[in-house]
Design a protein around this nucleic acid. Structure first.
Lengths: 137, 137, 137, 137
DNA sequence: GTGGTCTAGACCACC
DNA sequence: GTGGTCTAGACCACG
Protein backbone atom coordinates (compact mmCIF):
# COMPACT_ATOMS: atom_id res chain seq x y z
CA UNK A 1 0.00 0.00 0.00
CA UNK A 2 1.92 2.97 -1.31
CA UNK A 3 0.21 6.17 -0.35
CA UNK A 4 1.48 9.70 -0.42
CA UNK A 5 -0.13 12.39 1.70
CA UNK A 6 0.47 16.04 1.11
CA UNK A 7 0.52 17.95 4.37
CA UNK A 8 0.55 21.27 2.50
CA UNK A 9 -2.65 20.47 0.62
CA UNK A 10 -5.85 21.91 2.03
CA UNK A 11 -7.68 18.62 1.49
CA UNK A 12 -8.03 16.89 4.86
CA UNK A 13 -5.63 14.03 5.38
CA UNK A 14 -8.36 11.48 5.88
CA UNK A 15 -9.90 12.50 2.55
CA UNK A 16 -6.62 12.36 0.71
CA UNK A 17 -6.16 8.89 2.10
CA UNK A 18 -9.68 7.92 1.11
CA UNK A 19 -9.12 9.16 -2.43
CA UNK A 20 -5.80 7.39 -2.83
CA UNK A 21 -7.31 4.11 -1.75
CA UNK A 22 -10.17 4.50 -4.20
CA UNK A 23 -7.60 5.14 -6.92
CA UNK A 24 -5.63 2.07 -5.98
CA UNK A 25 -8.74 -0.07 -6.11
CA UNK A 26 -9.76 1.48 -9.41
CA UNK A 27 -6.33 0.91 -10.88
CA UNK A 28 -6.33 -2.70 -9.74
CA UNK A 29 -3.41 -2.30 -7.36
CA UNK A 30 -5.67 -3.30 -4.52
CA UNK A 31 -7.63 -6.35 -5.57
CA UNK A 32 -11.15 -7.08 -4.37
CA UNK A 33 -10.94 -9.13 -1.23
CA UNK A 34 -7.36 -8.12 -0.56
CA UNK A 35 -6.52 -7.20 2.99
CA UNK A 36 -5.42 -3.68 3.76
CA UNK A 37 -2.88 -2.70 6.39
CA UNK A 38 -4.03 -2.31 9.95
CA UNK A 39 -5.18 1.11 11.05
CA UNK A 40 -2.14 1.35 13.27
CA UNK A 41 0.25 0.03 10.66
CA UNK A 42 -0.85 2.48 8.03
CA UNK A 43 -0.90 5.29 10.55
CA UNK A 44 2.67 4.53 11.53
CA UNK A 45 3.75 4.20 7.92
CA UNK A 46 2.20 7.52 6.98
CA UNK A 47 3.24 9.26 10.15
CA UNK A 48 -0.29 10.30 11.03
CA UNK A 49 -2.59 9.57 13.91
CA UNK A 50 -4.49 6.31 13.98
CA UNK A 51 -7.80 8.14 14.21
CA UNK A 52 -7.09 9.79 10.88
CA UNK A 53 -6.67 6.43 9.18
CA UNK A 54 -9.64 5.16 11.12
CA UNK A 55 -11.79 7.95 9.73
CA UNK A 56 -10.72 7.20 6.18
CA UNK A 57 -11.44 3.50 6.59
CA UNK A 58 -14.81 4.22 8.19
CA UNK A 59 -15.75 6.49 5.31
CA UNK A 60 -14.71 3.93 2.71
CA UNK A 61 -16.61 1.26 4.58
CA UNK A 62 -19.70 3.42 4.64
CA UNK A 63 -19.34 4.02 0.91
CA UNK A 64 -19.07 0.30 0.31
CA UNK A 65 -15.50 0.21 -0.93
CA UNK A 66 -14.16 -1.59 2.11
CA UNK A 67 -15.51 -4.25 4.40
CA UNK A 68 -14.40 -4.93 7.89
CA UNK A 69 -14.23 -8.51 8.93
CA UNK A 70 -14.93 -9.03 12.58
CA UNK A 71 -11.87 -11.12 13.33
CA UNK A 72 -9.19 -9.71 11.06
CA UNK A 73 -8.71 -6.22 9.77
CA UNK A 74 -10.00 -4.38 6.78
CA UNK A 75 -10.28 -5.60 3.19
CA UNK A 76 -11.35 -4.35 -0.21
CA UNK A 77 -14.97 -5.21 -0.89
CA UNK A 78 -15.67 -7.99 -3.33
CA UNK A 79 -18.29 -6.08 -5.23
CA UNK A 80 -19.40 -2.51 -5.07
CA UNK A 81 -22.82 -0.98 -4.65
CA UNK A 82 -24.46 0.40 -7.79
CA UNK A 83 -24.59 4.06 -8.57
CA UNK A 84 -27.53 5.32 -6.48
CA UNK A 85 -27.15 9.12 -6.31
CA UNK A 86 -23.59 8.86 -7.50
CA UNK A 87 -24.60 9.77 -11.03
CA UNK A 88 -25.94 13.12 -9.88
CA UNK A 89 -22.67 13.92 -8.17
CA UNK A 90 -20.79 12.79 -11.25
CA UNK A 91 -22.81 15.10 -13.46
CA UNK A 92 -22.20 18.03 -11.17
CA UNK A 93 -18.50 17.42 -11.01
CA UNK A 94 -18.25 16.92 -14.74
CA UNK A 95 -20.17 20.08 -15.51
CA UNK A 96 -17.63 22.10 -13.58
CA UNK A 97 -14.69 20.36 -15.20
CA UNK A 98 -16.10 20.77 -18.68
CA UNK A 99 -16.86 24.43 -18.09
CA UNK A 100 -13.35 25.15 -16.92
CA UNK A 101 -11.82 23.03 -19.67
CA UNK A 102 -13.81 24.75 -22.37
CA UNK A 103 -12.93 28.18 -21.09
CA UNK A 104 -9.26 27.32 -20.85
CA UNK A 105 -9.12 26.23 -24.46
CA UNK A 106 -9.33 22.46 -24.19
CA UNK A 107 -11.48 21.39 -27.12
CA UNK A 108 -13.97 18.57 -27.12
CA UNK A 109 -11.73 15.95 -28.73
CA UNK A 110 -8.87 16.66 -26.37
CA UNK A 111 -11.18 16.57 -23.38
CA UNK A 112 -12.80 13.31 -24.36
CA UNK A 113 -9.47 11.72 -25.17
CA UNK A 114 -8.33 12.60 -21.67
CA UNK A 115 -11.50 11.15 -20.19
CA UNK A 116 -11.00 7.95 -22.13
CA UNK A 117 -7.38 7.67 -21.07
CA UNK A 118 -8.23 8.10 -17.40
CA UNK A 119 -11.13 5.72 -17.60
CA UNK A 120 -8.97 3.02 -19.13
CA UNK A 121 -6.36 3.48 -16.46
CA UNK A 122 -8.52 3.78 -13.38
CA UNK A 123 -12.04 2.80 -14.24
CA UNK A 124 -11.49 -0.84 -15.02
CA UNK A 125 -9.22 -2.21 -12.33
CA UNK A 126 -11.80 -4.07 -10.34
CA UNK A 127 -13.64 -5.59 -13.24
CA UNK A 128 -10.66 -7.09 -14.98
CA UNK A 129 -9.32 -8.17 -11.64
CA UNK A 130 -12.45 -10.14 -10.89
CA UNK A 131 -12.12 -12.19 -14.05
CA UNK A 132 -8.47 -13.07 -13.92
CA UNK A 133 -8.08 -13.39 -10.21
CA UNK A 134 -7.21 -17.08 -10.29
CA UNK A 135 -3.77 -18.55 -10.67
CA UNK A 136 -2.67 -18.33 -14.29
CA UNK A 137 -1.41 -21.92 -14.32
CA UNK B 1 -27.19 36.54 -12.15
CA UNK B 2 -29.29 33.71 -10.84
CA UNK B 3 -27.39 31.77 -8.26
CA UNK B 4 -28.61 29.17 -5.80
CA UNK B 5 -26.59 28.50 -2.69
CA UNK B 6 -27.18 25.53 -0.48
CA UNK B 7 -26.56 26.50 3.10
CA UNK B 8 -26.59 22.90 4.24
CA UNK B 9 -24.06 21.68 1.74
CA UNK B 10 -20.59 20.96 3.00
CA UNK B 11 -19.05 22.98 0.20
CA UNK B 12 -18.12 26.44 1.49
CA UNK B 13 -20.44 29.19 0.33
CA UNK B 14 -17.72 31.17 -1.40
CA UNK B 15 -16.77 28.06 -3.39
CA UNK B 16 -20.34 27.30 -4.33
CA UNK B 17 -20.63 30.85 -5.58
CA UNK B 18 -17.35 30.60 -7.47
CA UNK B 19 -18.46 27.36 -9.09
CA UNK B 20 -21.83 28.69 -10.11
CA UNK B 21 -20.27 31.69 -11.75
CA UNK B 22 -17.85 29.49 -13.66
CA UNK B 23 -20.79 27.39 -14.80
CA UNK B 24 -22.69 30.44 -15.96
CA UNK B 25 -19.72 31.63 -17.97
CA UNK B 26 -19.22 28.17 -19.40
CA UNK B 27 -22.86 27.87 -20.34
CA UNK B 28 -22.78 31.25 -22.01
CA UNK B 29 -25.24 32.87 -19.61
CA UNK B 30 -22.57 35.33 -18.59
CA UNK B 31 -20.81 36.61 -21.71
CA UNK B 32 -17.18 37.69 -21.78
CA UNK B 33 -16.98 41.34 -20.89
CA UNK B 34 -20.36 41.34 -19.18
CA UNK B 35 -20.56 43.21 -15.93
CA UNK B 36 -21.36 41.34 -12.73
CA UNK B 37 -23.32 42.72 -9.79
CA UNK B 38 -21.34 44.50 -7.15
CA UNK B 39 -20.24 42.60 -4.11
CA UNK B 40 -22.86 44.31 -2.00
CA UNK B 41 -25.67 43.76 -4.46
CA UNK B 42 -24.98 40.08 -4.85
CA UNK B 43 -24.49 39.62 -1.14
CA UNK B 44 -27.83 41.25 -0.44
CA UNK B 45 -29.55 39.22 -3.15
CA UNK B 46 -28.15 35.96 -1.81
CA UNK B 47 -28.55 36.87 1.82
CA UNK B 48 -24.94 36.17 2.66
CA UNK B 49 -22.11 38.16 4.09
CA UNK B 50 -20.35 40.54 1.68
CA UNK B 51 -17.04 38.98 2.65
CA UNK B 52 -18.23 35.72 1.17
CA UNK B 53 -18.99 37.26 -2.22
CA UNK B 54 -15.76 39.19 -2.05
CA UNK B 55 -13.82 36.01 -1.51
CA UNK B 56 -15.46 34.33 -4.48
CA UNK B 57 -14.78 37.30 -6.75
CA UNK B 58 -11.18 37.49 -5.60
CA UNK B 59 -10.68 33.81 -6.28
CA UNK B 60 -12.22 34.09 -9.74
CA UNK B 61 -10.07 37.11 -10.51
CA UNK B 62 -6.96 35.27 -9.42
CA UNK B 63 -7.95 32.37 -11.64
CA UNK B 64 -8.42 34.73 -14.56
CA UNK B 65 -12.16 34.31 -14.98
CA UNK B 66 -13.00 37.80 -13.83
CA UNK B 67 -11.36 41.18 -14.20
CA UNK B 68 -11.81 44.01 -11.80
CA UNK B 69 -11.79 47.50 -13.18
CA UNK B 70 -11.54 50.30 -10.69
CA UNK B 71 -14.29 52.24 -12.43
CA UNK B 72 -16.46 49.60 -14.07
CA UNK B 73 -16.51 47.14 -11.18
CA UNK B 74 -16.28 43.42 -11.81
CA UNK B 75 -16.73 41.83 -15.22
CA UNK B 76 -16.25 38.52 -16.96
CA UNK B 77 -12.81 38.35 -18.55
CA UNK B 78 -12.61 38.66 -22.33
CA UNK B 79 -10.24 35.79 -22.70
CA UNK B 80 -9.13 33.13 -20.33
CA UNK B 81 -5.66 31.94 -19.48
CA UNK B 82 -4.63 28.71 -21.20
CA UNK B 83 -4.30 25.43 -19.40
CA UNK B 84 -0.97 25.75 -17.55
CA UNK B 85 -1.22 23.55 -14.48
CA UNK B 86 -4.94 23.20 -14.97
CA UNK B 87 -4.40 20.05 -16.98
CA UNK B 88 -2.71 18.40 -14.05
CA UNK B 89 -5.65 19.21 -11.78
CA UNK B 90 -8.02 18.02 -14.48
CA UNK B 91 -6.24 14.69 -14.74
CA UNK B 92 -6.28 14.22 -10.99
CA UNK B 93 -9.97 15.02 -10.75
CA UNK B 94 -10.81 12.80 -13.68
CA UNK B 95 -8.83 9.88 -12.32
CA UNK B 96 -10.90 9.91 -9.16
CA UNK B 97 -14.16 10.21 -11.07
CA UNK B 98 -13.26 7.42 -13.47
CA UNK B 99 -12.18 5.14 -10.65
CA UNK B 100 -15.42 5.65 -8.78
CA UNK B 101 -17.48 5.36 -11.94
CA UNK B 102 -15.81 2.14 -13.00
CA UNK B 103 -16.20 0.59 -9.59
CA UNK B 104 -19.85 1.58 -9.42
CA UNK B 105 -20.62 -0.08 -12.68
CA UNK B 106 -20.68 2.81 -15.14
CA UNK B 107 -19.10 1.45 -18.28
CA UNK B 108 -16.84 3.33 -20.64
CA UNK B 109 -19.46 4.25 -23.22
CA UNK B 110 -21.86 5.56 -20.61
CA UNK B 111 -19.13 7.53 -18.94
CA UNK B 112 -17.89 9.08 -22.17
CA UNK B 113 -21.40 9.87 -23.30
CA UNK B 114 -21.92 11.74 -20.07
CA UNK B 115 -18.65 13.61 -20.53
CA UNK B 116 -19.66 14.60 -24.03
CA UNK B 117 -23.08 15.74 -22.91
CA UNK B 118 -21.65 17.93 -20.17
CA UNK B 119 -18.95 19.31 -22.44
CA UNK B 120 -21.49 20.34 -25.03
CA UNK B 121 -23.61 22.04 -22.42
CA UNK B 122 -20.97 23.81 -20.37
CA UNK B 123 -17.68 23.64 -22.20
CA UNK B 124 -18.54 25.73 -25.19
CA UNK B 125 -19.92 28.96 -23.83
CA UNK B 126 -16.82 31.00 -24.58
CA UNK B 127 -16.17 29.53 -28.00
CA UNK B 128 -16.71 32.84 -29.67
CA UNK B 129 -14.46 34.45 -27.16
CA UNK B 130 -11.64 32.12 -28.08
CA UNK B 131 -11.69 33.38 -31.67
CA UNK B 132 -10.98 36.93 -30.71
CA UNK B 133 -8.48 36.02 -28.07
CA UNK B 134 -6.06 38.83 -28.75
CA UNK B 135 -4.78 41.09 -26.06
CA UNK B 136 -7.63 42.56 -24.14
CA UNK B 137 -5.84 45.85 -23.68
CA UNK C 1 -31.93 20.04 25.78
CA UNK C 2 -32.13 17.74 28.74
CA UNK C 3 -30.06 14.66 28.14
CA UNK C 4 -28.90 12.02 30.55
CA UNK C 5 -25.92 9.85 29.74
CA UNK C 6 -25.17 6.70 31.62
CA UNK C 7 -21.45 6.18 31.96
CA UNK C 8 -21.99 2.68 33.33
CA UNK C 9 -23.96 1.55 30.30
CA UNK C 10 -22.06 -0.34 27.63
CA UNK C 11 -23.72 1.65 24.88
CA UNK C 12 -21.18 4.18 23.59
CA UNK C 13 -21.77 7.72 24.78
CA UNK C 14 -22.16 9.12 21.30
CA UNK C 15 -24.86 6.53 20.58
CA UNK C 16 -26.70 7.21 23.80
CA UNK C 17 -26.65 10.86 22.88
CA UNK C 18 -27.84 10.10 19.37
CA UNK C 19 -30.71 8.01 20.71
CA UNK C 20 -31.78 10.59 23.24
CA UNK C 21 -31.91 13.27 20.58
CA UNK C 22 -34.01 11.06 18.32
CA UNK C 23 -36.38 10.50 21.24
CA UNK C 24 -36.65 14.20 21.91
CA UNK C 25 -37.46 14.88 18.29
CA UNK C 26 -39.96 12.05 18.25
CA UNK C 27 -41.61 13.27 21.41
CA UNK C 28 -41.86 16.78 20.04
CA UNK C 29 -39.56 18.31 22.63
CA UNK C 30 -37.22 19.34 19.87
CA UNK C 31 -39.25 20.92 17.11
CA UNK C 32 -38.30 20.70 13.43
CA UNK C 33 -36.11 23.64 12.57
CA UNK C 34 -35.20 24.27 16.18
CA UNK C 35 -31.58 24.99 16.90
CA UNK C 36 -29.62 22.60 19.04
CA UNK C 37 -26.88 23.57 21.46
CA UNK C 38 -23.39 24.04 20.13
CA UNK C 39 -21.12 21.03 20.11
CA UNK C 40 -19.01 22.67 22.76
CA UNK C 41 -21.97 23.79 24.84
CA UNK C 42 -23.53 20.38 24.95
CA UNK C 43 -20.18 18.77 25.61
CA UNK C 44 -19.61 21.06 28.56
CA UNK C 45 -23.12 20.51 29.85
CA UNK C 46 -22.77 16.74 29.66
CA UNK C 47 -19.22 16.68 30.87
CA UNK C 48 -17.94 14.81 27.85
CA UNK C 49 -15.48 15.59 25.14
CA UNK C 50 -16.54 17.77 22.24
CA UNK C 51 -15.60 15.06 19.76
CA UNK C 52 -18.13 12.76 21.35
CA UNK C 53 -20.93 15.24 20.77
CA UNK C 54 -19.52 15.92 17.35
CA UNK C 55 -19.75 12.27 16.47
CA UNK C 56 -23.37 12.07 17.59
CA UNK C 57 -24.28 15.17 15.61
CA UNK C 58 -22.46 13.87 12.53
CA UNK C 59 -24.30 10.59 12.75
CA UNK C 60 -27.66 12.28 13.13
CA UNK C 61 -26.85 14.56 10.23
CA UNK C 62 -25.94 11.60 8.09
CA UNK C 63 -29.20 9.94 9.03
CA UNK C 64 -31.12 13.05 8.08
CA UNK C 65 -32.38 14.00 11.51
CA UNK C 66 -30.23 17.09 11.81
CA UNK C 67 -29.01 19.68 9.38
CA UNK C 68 -26.01 21.86 9.79
CA UNK C 69 -26.31 25.38 8.61
CA UNK C 70 -23.08 26.81 7.37
CA UNK C 71 -23.20 29.99 9.41
CA UNK C 72 -24.86 28.95 12.62
CA UNK C 73 -24.87 25.68 14.43
CA UNK C 74 -26.96 22.58 14.20
CA UNK C 75 -30.73 22.32 13.92
CA UNK C 76 -33.44 19.69 13.74
CA UNK C 77 -34.30 18.88 10.14
CA UNK C 78 -37.58 20.20 8.79
CA UNK C 79 -38.59 16.92 7.23
CA UNK C 80 -37.15 13.50 7.42
CA UNK C 81 -36.14 11.07 4.72
CA UNK C 82 -38.54 8.22 4.02
CA UNK C 83 -37.94 4.71 5.21
CA UNK C 84 -35.46 3.28 2.67
CA UNK C 85 -33.95 0.20 4.30
CA UNK C 86 -35.24 1.28 7.69
CA UNK C 87 -38.18 -1.06 7.45
CA UNK C 88 -35.87 -4.05 7.21
CA UNK C 89 -34.06 -2.99 10.35
CA UNK C 90 -37.38 -2.38 12.05
CA UNK C 91 -38.58 -5.88 11.22
CA UNK C 92 -35.40 -7.43 12.52
CA UNK C 93 -35.55 -5.49 15.75
CA UNK C 94 -39.20 -6.24 16.24
CA UNK C 95 -38.74 -9.94 15.62
CA UNK C 96 -36.26 -10.11 18.46
CA UNK C 97 -38.46 -8.10 20.79
CA UNK C 98 -41.54 -10.16 20.02
CA UNK C 99 -39.66 -13.42 20.49
CA UNK C 100 -38.37 -12.37 23.89
CA UNK C 101 -41.73 -10.92 24.89
CA UNK C 102 -43.57 -14.06 23.94
CA UNK C 103 -41.15 -16.27 25.80
CA UNK C 104 -41.32 -14.11 28.89
CA UNK C 105 -45.07 -14.35 29.05
CA UNK C 106 -46.19 -11.07 27.54
CA UNK C 107 -49.25 -11.93 25.50
CA UNK C 108 -50.22 -10.38 22.22
CA UNK C 109 -52.70 -7.87 23.59
CA UNK C 110 -50.31 -6.63 26.22
CA UNK C 111 -47.52 -6.36 23.70
CA UNK C 112 -49.58 -4.46 21.17
CA UNK C 113 -50.96 -2.16 23.83
CA UNK C 114 -47.42 -1.30 24.80
CA UNK C 115 -46.49 -0.68 21.17
CA UNK C 116 -49.45 1.63 20.76
CA UNK C 117 -48.65 3.52 23.93
CA UNK C 118 -45.06 4.10 22.85
CA UNK C 119 -46.04 5.06 19.34
CA UNK C 120 -48.48 7.65 20.61
CA UNK C 121 -45.89 9.11 22.90
CA UNK C 122 -42.85 9.14 20.63
CA UNK C 123 -43.95 8.43 17.12
CA UNK C 124 -46.00 11.51 16.47
CA UNK C 125 -44.00 14.43 17.79
CA UNK C 126 -42.79 15.80 14.51
CA UNK C 127 -46.01 15.44 12.61
CA UNK C 128 -48.22 17.25 15.04
CA UNK C 129 -45.49 19.80 15.53
CA UNK C 130 -45.42 20.63 11.86
CA UNK C 131 -49.11 21.47 11.82
CA UNK C 132 -49.37 23.60 14.90
CA UNK C 133 -46.02 25.27 14.76
CA UNK C 134 -47.43 28.78 14.47
CA UNK C 135 -48.28 31.07 17.34
CA UNK C 136 -51.51 29.99 18.96
CA UNK C 137 -52.83 33.55 19.14
CA UNK D 1 -29.48 -25.64 14.35
CA UNK D 2 -29.28 -23.49 11.25
CA UNK D 3 -27.64 -20.22 12.07
CA UNK D 4 -26.27 -17.59 9.75
CA UNK D 5 -23.64 -15.20 11.04
CA UNK D 6 -22.64 -12.08 9.21
CA UNK D 7 -18.96 -11.46 9.73
CA UNK D 8 -19.19 -7.96 8.33
CA UNK D 9 -22.03 -6.85 10.55
CA UNK D 10 -21.18 -4.53 13.40
CA UNK D 11 -23.10 -6.68 15.85
CA UNK D 12 -20.65 -8.91 17.75
CA UNK D 13 -20.69 -12.53 16.68
CA UNK D 14 -21.65 -13.86 20.08
CA UNK D 15 -24.64 -11.50 20.13
CA UNK D 16 -25.74 -12.45 16.65
CA UNK D 17 -25.61 -16.05 17.75
CA UNK D 18 -27.51 -15.31 20.94
CA UNK D 19 -30.18 -13.45 18.98
CA UNK D 20 -30.58 -16.18 16.41
CA UNK D 21 -31.06 -18.77 19.09
CA UNK D 22 -33.69 -16.64 20.80
CA UNK D 23 -35.46 -16.28 17.47
CA UNK D 24 -35.40 -20.01 16.88
CA UNK D 25 -36.89 -20.65 20.29
CA UNK D 26 -39.48 -17.96 19.74
CA UNK D 27 -40.40 -19.34 16.34
CA UNK D 28 -40.73 -22.83 17.77
CA UNK D 29 -37.87 -24.29 15.76
CA UNK D 30 -36.10 -25.12 18.98
CA UNK D 31 -38.56 -26.66 21.42
CA UNK D 32 -38.30 -26.31 25.18
CA UNK D 33 -36.16 -29.12 26.53
CA UNK D 34 -34.50 -29.74 23.18
CA UNK D 35 -30.78 -30.29 23.24
CA UNK D 36 -28.47 -27.90 21.49
CA UNK D 37 -25.19 -28.78 19.79
CA UNK D 38 -22.13 -28.72 21.95
CA UNK D 39 -20.01 -25.62 21.97
CA UNK D 40 -17.36 -27.32 19.87
CA UNK D 41 -19.81 -28.71 17.35
CA UNK D 42 -21.53 -25.41 16.78
CA UNK D 43 -18.24 -23.56 16.65
CA UNK D 44 -16.94 -25.94 14.01
CA UNK D 45 -20.15 -25.72 12.04
CA UNK D 46 -20.11 -21.94 12.05
CA UNK D 47 -16.38 -21.62 11.59
CA UNK D 48 -15.93 -19.42 14.61
CA UNK D 49 -13.94 -19.63 17.77
CA UNK D 50 -15.36 -21.88 20.50
CA UNK D 51 -15.10 -19.02 22.97
CA UNK D 52 -17.62 -17.13 20.88
CA UNK D 53 -20.20 -19.89 21.10
CA UNK D 54 -19.41 -20.33 24.74
CA UNK D 55 -20.07 -16.69 25.39
CA UNK D 56 -23.43 -16.84 23.62
CA UNK D 57 -24.48 -19.96 25.56
CA UNK D 58 -23.40 -18.41 28.84
CA UNK D 59 -25.38 -15.28 28.12
CA UNK D 60 -28.46 -17.27 27.19
CA UNK D 61 -28.13 -19.37 30.31
CA UNK D 62 -27.83 -16.28 32.45
CA UNK D 63 -30.93 -14.87 30.77
CA UNK D 64 -32.79 -18.12 31.50
CA UNK D 65 -33.28 -19.24 27.92
CA UNK D 66 -30.92 -22.19 28.20
CA UNK D 67 -30.08 -24.65 30.95
CA UNK D 68 -26.82 -26.45 31.21
CA UNK D 69 -26.85 -29.93 32.58
CA UNK D 70 -23.53 -31.44 33.49
CA UNK D 71 -24.40 -34.72 31.75
CA UNK D 72 -26.85 -33.75 29.06
CA UNK D 73 -25.03 -30.64 27.84
CA UNK D 74 -26.97 -27.54 26.85
CA UNK D 75 -30.70 -27.51 26.27
CA UNK D 76 -33.51 -25.05 25.78
CA UNK D 77 -35.13 -24.21 29.11
CA UNK D 78 -38.53 -25.71 29.84
CA UNK D 79 -39.96 -22.49 31.11
CA UNK D 80 -38.76 -18.96 30.94
CA UNK D 81 -38.45 -16.38 33.67
CA UNK D 82 -41.24 -13.80 33.72
CA UNK D 83 -40.73 -10.22 32.69
CA UNK D 84 -38.93 -8.70 35.70
CA UNK D 85 -36.89 -5.78 34.38
CA UNK D 86 -37.42 -6.98 30.84
CA UNK D 87 -40.43 -4.73 30.49
CA UNK D 88 -38.33 -1.69 31.16
CA UNK D 89 -35.88 -2.67 28.46
CA UNK D 90 -38.77 -3.41 26.13
CA UNK D 91 -40.23 0.02 26.68
CA UNK D 92 -36.91 1.69 26.05
CA UNK D 93 -36.33 -0.23 22.86
CA UNK D 94 -39.85 0.39 21.64
CA UNK D 95 -39.68 4.08 22.34
CA UNK D 96 -36.68 4.41 20.05
CA UNK D 97 -38.28 2.32 17.35
CA UNK D 98 -41.55 4.24 17.48
CA UNK D 99 -39.74 7.56 17.39
CA UNK D 100 -37.76 6.60 14.33
CA UNK D 101 -40.77 5.02 12.67
CA UNK D 102 -42.94 8.06 13.23
CA UNK D 103 -40.30 10.43 11.94
CA UNK D 104 -39.69 8.31 8.87
CA UNK D 105 -43.31 8.34 7.95
CA UNK D 106 -44.58 4.99 9.17
CA UNK D 107 -48.05 5.66 10.53
CA UNK D 108 -49.61 4.03 13.56
CA UNK D 109 -51.64 1.41 11.70
CA UNK D 110 -48.68 0.30 9.63
CA UNK D 111 -46.49 0.14 12.68
CA UNK D 112 -48.95 -1.85 14.72
CA UNK D 113 -49.66 -4.20 11.85
CA UNK D 114 -45.96 -4.91 11.65
CA UNK D 115 -45.78 -5.50 15.39
CA UNK D 116 -48.67 -7.92 15.19
CA UNK D 117 -47.15 -9.77 12.27
CA UNK D 118 -43.84 -10.21 14.04
CA UNK D 119 -45.50 -11.22 17.29
CA UNK D 120 -47.51 -13.92 15.57
CA UNK D 121 -44.43 -15.26 13.89
CA UNK D 122 -41.93 -15.13 16.72
CA UNK D 123 -43.74 -14.41 19.93
CA UNK D 124 -45.77 -17.58 20.22
CA UNK D 125 -43.32 -20.43 19.88
CA UNK D 126 -43.31 -21.35 23.56
CA UNK D 127 -47.04 -21.04 24.10
CA UNK D 128 -47.41 -24.69 24.90
CA UNK D 129 -44.46 -24.47 27.24
CA UNK D 130 -46.16 -21.77 29.27
CA UNK D 131 -49.00 -24.13 30.13
CA UNK D 132 -46.81 -26.65 31.84
CA UNK D 133 -44.71 -24.10 33.59
CA UNK D 134 -44.34 -25.91 36.86
CA UNK D 135 -41.04 -26.43 38.59
CA UNK D 136 -38.61 -28.01 36.21
CA UNK D 137 -36.97 -30.08 38.91
C1' DG E 1 -3.87 -8.05 17.87
C1' DT E 2 -8.02 -5.94 15.73
C1' DG E 3 -11.03 -1.86 15.45
C1' DG E 4 -13.95 1.26 18.46
C1' DT E 5 -14.32 4.73 21.92
C1' DC E 6 -12.95 8.56 24.62
C1' DT E 7 -10.08 12.37 26.39
C1' DA E 8 -7.85 17.00 26.53
C1' DG E 9 -6.21 20.25 24.01
C1' DA E 10 -4.77 22.41 19.73
C1' DC E 11 -5.27 24.72 15.16
C1' DC E 12 -7.84 26.10 11.14
C1' DA E 13 -11.49 27.29 7.63
C1' DC E 14 -15.63 29.49 7.25
C1' DC E 15 -18.83 33.09 8.12
C1' DG F 1 -18.47 32.46 16.94
C1' DT F 2 -19.30 27.85 14.47
C1' DG F 3 -17.96 23.05 13.11
C1' DG F 4 -13.97 20.31 11.17
C1' DT F 5 -9.51 18.32 11.62
C1' DC F 6 -5.64 16.42 13.90
C1' DT F 7 -2.66 14.77 17.70
C1' DA F 8 -0.90 11.61 21.37
C1' DG F 9 -2.11 8.49 24.31
C1' DA F 10 -5.37 5.65 26.85
C1' DC F 11 -8.81 1.89 27.67
C1' DC F 12 -11.99 -1.64 26.17
C1' DA F 13 -14.74 -5.21 23.58
C1' DC F 14 -14.15 -8.68 20.41
C1' DG F 15 -12.15 -12.86 18.77
Amino acid sequence: MIVQLNLQCDVPLYLQLRNQIVLQIGEGLAQPGERLPTVRELAAQLGVNAMTVNKAYALLKQEGYLVQDRRAGTAVAKHFPPAADFTAKLERDLSLLTAESGLRGIDEETFLALCRKQYRRFGTGARTAKEGSGCSL
